[in-house]
């Protein structure tokens, strides 16, 4: 790692530390959420410097994009200012300092950044890189490991997203039930309807964002990308559309039923691919049995489950947004 990029990443990380301190100290929650967007961007940049392109893209799309939207949605319905001061600050500061010292104490024996002799590099990594080229033959090793070698983790993780979706819908009720589905489209108050410029530009940009989303979805094997990032980007575009055109029209574009079907369909698709592996004689989530040629089977498997992930993540994030938005309107 050339010293310049190391210095640059140290600069970024110092900036990050300052931003997080600022987040914790400000009393105005709106400022805190904005600063979080910046912090998440800084983290995404430092991820990129640490050669984690996929993770940088995800952190940017999910961390900066979706979580800021969610926090703003929540702030809109609750108070923007933090009223009461922090409770027993000194004691908690003390505990926190002690734990920090423990962690720092542990770092002295750790292998320094990027040292080739570290067990992480020696043990599993060469096998993954070697067998990706040989067994699955796709350039992006991260997608290969994510989808195939540790596909079970990713299935669990799609289930986490699905649980979050079910949880939010359970707590806040589905968007449709809250705002009267049949009400006529009130022209005036929906979204930024009377903002001419953003609407025109939005109408121009949204297709390209969707295109980028699909590109990231299907190009996941070759360049950084995959189901999660694609789902987040597609969700971002739909959310932008509903911000511009108003929530009723967004519900018209993708009604609540379709969203639910997307949520459920994605997970079932992923499960179906796994079970197909089981039925065709391999173990659960073994894609090599899906096609006569095992390498082709692996590629098919990865493609299908990436689509499943994309659909679920998009469905969940959009329905969460609608749940938050409808809570405001109700």
């Amino acid at each position: 790692m050339s010293t310049i990029t190391l210095l640059f990443s140290i600069f970024l990380l110092t900036l990050l530390m300052i931003t997080t301190m600022a987040i914790v100290r400000t009393r105005n929650l709106f400022v805190a959420v904005m600063l979080m967007g910046i912090a998440s961007l800084l983290i995404a940049a430092s991820f990129f410097l640490l050669d984690a392109a996929d993770v940088a893209l995800t952190e940017a799309a999910v961390g900066a994009g979706i979580s800021t939207v969610l926090f703003l949605g929540a702030l809109a319905l609750t108070s923007e200012r933090e009223r009461s001061p922090s409770s027993l600050p000194l004691l908690s500061l003390g505990i926190v300092a002690i734990v920090a010292l423990i962690v720092i104490y542990a770092t002295f024996d750790q292998p320094p950044l990027g040292s080739p002799s570290a067990p992480v590099q020696a043990h599993l990594t060469p096998w993954y890189i070697e067998s990706t080229r040989e067994l699955i033959d796709i350039p992006n090793v991260v997608t290969a490991v994510l989808a195939s070698f540790r596909g079970y983790d990713t299935l669990g993780e799609v289930i986490v997203v699905f649980t979050a979706g079910v949880g939010v819908l359970f707590l806040l009720g589905t968007g449709a039930s809250a705002s009267a589905a049949g009400a006529p489209l009130s022209e005036d108050n929906a979204g930024l309807r009377h903002y001419l410029i953003p609407r025109i530009l939005g109408r121009l940009l949204i297709p390209f964002i969707l295109l980028l989303g699909f590109y990231v979805q299907f190009h996941g094997e070759y360049s950084p990308g995959g189901g999660f990032q694609a789902g987040a980007i597609v969700a971002a575009s739909i959310i932008l559309y509903s911000l511009l055109e108003g929530e009723q029209r967004a519900l018209l574009v993708i009604p609540q039923g379709v969203l639910l079907a997307m949520m459920v369909g994605g997970v079932l698709l992923y499960g179906a691919v796994g079970v197909a592996g089981l039925v065709l004689g391999g173990n659960f989530l073994d894609y090599s049995v899906l096609d006569s040629d095992p390498v082709k089977g692996q590629q098919w498997g990865i493609l299908l489950i990436e689509i499943g992930i994309g659909i679920t993540v998009a469905g969940v994030l959009i329905s969460i947004f609608h749940a938050f938005a409808s809570r405001g309107a109700a």
Binding site: I102, A106, T107, D109, Q110, P119, Q121, H123, L124
Partner: peptide
């Protein structure tokens, strides 16, 4: 931290490789 010192996530494999870990500070933490 354990993954960093042993390089693996599988419990059985992890158990096998811990002996080889010379410096114990991160392990205790």
């Amino acid at each position: 931290l354990v993954y960093m010192m042993t390089g693996t996530l599988n419990l059985a494999d992890m158990a096998g490789r811990i002996e080889a870990v010379a410096d114990t500070r991160p392990m205790i933490v």
